[in-house]
Nucleic acid binder design. Structure first.
Lengths: 349, 349
DNA sequence: ATGAAAGCGCTAACAC
DNA sequence: GTGTTAGCGCTTTCAT
């Protein structure tokens, strides 16, 4: 049986209340001598507090819930790592849940679980999907009643205090495509993400903005919807080649890598025969023989920001009560263009 | 205030015990009618059980702890995803902790936290470091008294029932280097991992085995100790070139990618001017213009195996008590060679 | 400076 | 079938 404060109390000849106080770390009225004795006994008896009991009694935990999509995506993994690192250093504990399918049953199970967890904050790392109307409503209905701050790495319908930390995706796509156009490309293929993701639509808007501004027409046939994976990128290439594109804008770097891979099979040289630009700015971009140009936001910085804001919110609630947080807000990060070798003027000189 | 079983009990005019039973899902003696009423009321009142209270009362949770190193490594991320997926489908909840520094204070904090969490199993995903004698002892002392099965993705000193899921690293390195030798290479550089990792030593042994078997001598100057990152690989290249190597064996693919990157700066063509072989078999290997040859184990399969064994152990304890598990054991996965384009015969024909 | 006691929300004997 | 009751381990007034 695990050691409890009762055991320590008995051993030290004091009450459990005294043990609890002495071990709490706060400065109390317990005499220094008793404190010391209790701490030593706890150490000696291998005492570790039961956080279940503690959370229950205190109506709050030290856990911060995180919901993410797919860690195999290096961009998401990096974001997650940098959030986690901040939280842990501040004494909180990230509890990570993966939700990578749109199976409504799983979705519901997970949200119920989250509601059961007594979290002190939630980080929602899933892309926003406006079309999941029912699901979103359900999620918000449950999660928004938790009375904890909620942070989302994208737009969301949450009402709770907290922040939507977004990138201006429309502008990001605009910048990328505008750049392709500035290099002379006019038939520009697009490897999109899931159509249900808001970010996909935003980027398509940005793509279209750039075309329109340049007096080019928007052709929906130039959009291929991928799945953010290497194989999605591979599958996109033959389709887009069939559409006679001279350049491709991919909504993540990973699918652009798929294009690189498949281009070899077609004997196509990048960028000579095909220009490519991606999204995310992952480290692997620079590994390629022809480094991938891309558009992205500072991942680590965003992660740190999220982590810090989570900590700040929790502390604020602790000290000034739950109303201290103010209205939910949205923060936009500006996208940057990272120009490397994967785009070439068209037609070739 | 959140809805509790008390609220439901009051609403339905029954006792909390009845509510608890009705909602437990097990088949009980509660009349179908009452059950239905309670379930509906729970739904209507937005009831979500408090797992803290439940775990406390039941002396067990549904949480499986996971400790990992660095998710930016795609191999680890993939392993983690496949473990998580199995656990979640079985109704368990992965609670992920990241421990990527050897700061003893963090180490200790984390282990204490884990001990506090009431986990039903633990997955230890950190490479084994025999030299951390004190730390390992401390970790084992704490963790082994938890009375839960412990799974490690490497060798370990844990005594609890559970499995060390290993790869035969020595053999893996042996296969890779033997292959390089079979292609005529005799001065083979090695980009190692942290010297404190057992896996690093094992692989160095395998490296040496291959040399010895071929009658080549082992030269410690040909070993460069890296940090598993791209930049580690980049830094290794100039050093190893200074040692006149014609081929490099890298202990992970990521550092091999760093070599690719840096080789460009030196105007070196892979594999013409330099042969490279890695470890891990990550998807990016195939993206490179010259796909990276590597040696690896089936990551997803290992992840699924770990997940399944965790579930099996927990179920077994549930039904047959904690002694049903038997002795701790070690399982070895066989490494496979994945030959692609990054190695060329030496001297060039 | 310390202890008694109530209670957090849920579970599980055992009683009726 | 359903209710009573006594906890789980910890925290927190309120006495003393």
């Amino acid at each position: 049986m695990r050691t409890t404060i009762k055991d320590i109390a008995r051993e030290c000849g004091v009450s459990t209340a005294t043990v609890s106080l002495a071990l709490s770390g706060r400065k109390t009225k317990i005499s220094e001598k008793t404190c010391k004795k209790i701490r030593e006994t706890a150490e000696r008896m291998n005492y570790y507090p039961n956080i279940m009991a503690s959370s229950l009694a205190r109506h709050k935990s030290q856990s911060v819930g995180i919901v993410i999509n797919d860690l195999r995506n290096t961009h998401i993994a990096a974001l997650f790592m940098s959030i986690s690192s901040v939280l842990q250093n501040a004494g909180f504990f990230p509890v990570c849940h993966i939700l990578n399918e749109n199976d409504p049953e799983m979705y519901e199970m997970l949200v119920r679980r989250i509601a059961s967890e007594n979290l002190c904050a939630l980080i929602w790392g899933k892309p926003y999907e406006p079309s999941l109307t029912e699901m979103n409503k359900k999620v918000c209905r449950i999660v928004d009643t938790l009375g904890i701050p909620i942070f989302s790495t994208d737009n969301s319908e949450f009402k709770s205090p907290g922040i939507n930390i977004c990138c201006d995706y429309r502008k990001a796509a605009f910048l990328a495509v505008q750049y392709l156009i500035s290099q002379g490309h006019t038939r520009i293929g697009c490897i999109a993400g899931y159509p249900s993701f808001q970010v996909t639509q935003d980027r398509i808007d940005g793509y279209r903005d750039a075309l329109t501004q340049a007096g080019l027409s928007y052709d929906p046939n130039l959009i291929y919807y991928g799945d953010y994976s290497l194989s999605g990128g591979r599958a996109a290439l033959p389709y887009l080649l069939g559409q006679q594109v001279s350049a491709i804008f991919s909504m993540n770097d990973e699918m652009a890598f798929g294009v690189y891979q498949e281009a070899r099979n077609y004997g196509l040289k990048i960028p000579d025969a095909l220009s490519v630009i991606g999204c995310d700015n992952v480290p692997f971009d620079n590994v390629l023989e022809v480094p991938l140009s891309t558009v992205g936001t500072p991942t680590d910085e965003m992660g740190r920001f999220i982590g810090q804001e989570v900590c700040r919110s929790i502390d604020l609630i602790d000290s000034d009560g739950p109303d201290a947080l103010g209205e939910r807000r949205t923060v936009y990060y500006e996208p940057n263009l990272y120009l490397r070798g994967s785009v070439r003027p068209y037609p070739p000189i």
